[in-house]
Design a protein around this nucleic acid. Sequence first.
DNA 1: CGGTTCCTTGAGAGAACTCAACGTCGGTGG
DNA 2: CCACCGACGTTGAGTTCTCTCAAGGAACCG
Lengths: 252, 252
Amino acid sequence: MAFDISHGSRAKPNCGMCPAAVACLSGSASQDDGPRWSDMMEPHSPVFPEGKSLFMAGEPATMVYFVRAGCIKTFSVDEDGNERVRGFHLPGDVIGMDALGSRCYPSSAGAVVPSQVCAIPRARLLELMSNSPLLMRGLLSRASQDLASALAFSGDYSADQRIAAFLLDMNDRLDHRPGETQCLRLPMSRREMGSFLRLATETVCRVLTRLEQQGSIELKNKAIHLKHAERLADLAAPVGLVSRMGELPLAA
Amino acid sequence: MAFDISHGSRAKPNCGMCPAAVACLSGSASQDDGPRWSDMMEPHSPVFPEGKSLFMAGEPATMVYFVRAGCIKTFSVDEDGNERVRGFHLPGDVIGMDALGSRCYPSSAGAVVPSQVCAIPRARLLELMSNSPLLMRGLLSRASQDLASALAFSGDYSADQRIAAFLLDMNDRLDHRPGETQCLRLPMSRREMGSFLRLATETVCRVLTRLEQQGSIELKNKAIHLKHAERLADLAAPVGLVSRMGELPLAA
DNA sequence: CGGTTCCTTGAGAGAACTCAACGTCGGTGG
DNA sequence: CCACCGACGTTGAGTTCTCTCAAGGAACCG
């Protein structure tokens, strides 16, 4: 993890110091908004231990969260108690945008690994958006990207294609030191991965094993070395997931 | 169809006269916004014959559309030329909200049956949203609902469950005179239905036939009579699709 | 160390797909 | 009016992919 959450838990947010701030604010606020942005935030950035939930589906949506460190999943639970992961949120990602227009969170959210988030009251964010078209544009842009990503994964693709696309997506989004060999350290379990990709846990395992036998990847538990990213990209091409690195620059 | 598009094609939008206006503006604008709203619109409401496309994926997003009559599908085309329907949009629905934050439309849009839409320049809408928090709230609310619906259908459910949920959703959204027996007239082909639900055309047919044999529905080509909506609802329950009739009232 | 959860692999079952054929509908032109 | 055509809809047979059930191994924690 790029940001050690063991120190400074419950620290007052200071976006100037936060390694995730670049991603949080990218395309979302002008230079001037920086200080105001920090001031908006709740005074503490709570730490959530693994498994702890931020909020439950149906709960009144009071806050919007920005992930500072760790990994947060959003999910819903069907009547049989089965969990369905809707998405994984990494440092710099926003959680709760889909509740901006409604009173309640449409899904639950919980920490996949120990995580830290910054919170901003939903009403304050709406107000801020009204005052800053640039911020509104930026946040809408993020929401659009999340939507596009969700739609891409919702397609009817084979297990191999979905997993290849997932690995590449996580590789894009998890920050890893440049120059370092592409070694993913996935925060989530096989079960959570399968839940997100609509695959049985066993199928996830089998596909990963198959990809390893083909020499495309190398498995070391949750660490995955992408040996032939190109081959994965070929496999994942039909999914049509565009890299989120291609951020919208600040210019309108 | 509740609104005969054979007359008044290319008519100047007049939301006071339009049967879809209630849905368009529901929760989206205050009383005062009504006239301003009409003025925003492009001077003509173009008619799109079946198959005609409104815009293509990747095209610069200049307009946001409101469906006035007919049925518009949004879709993407993969590298093999296969069409994947992302959603069906009925009178009162918005198209292009997912492009508000980006420069280009993420998917293509085309008429499923002869259809009429009202267009509003994207920039004008963004401007209007900045000036009217209520409008912003309303439109975000719609976007949230669309997202929730898309997520519900993206779940890993059986063909029967997805089709039952789809029929009930269409029944909710297609306006039919109250008191009339619940007789759906689906605008889309089996192929389009399957494309949306991630099912082969043949599977759609088989499931519909099965539902008919069970006495749940009655098929007359594209007209479908829901004989036992309850049974369908039981089947579709796990999909967790909430009726869109439960609109957010105007009150904050 | 137990105990638990997660990961992995195998065997069999089932759901949906593909391929193929045929029926139906709506339009077009002789 | 009827024959023809193409697109759409329906049904059957066989295949494939993924799931379920089952069991053993590995990692983690008190």
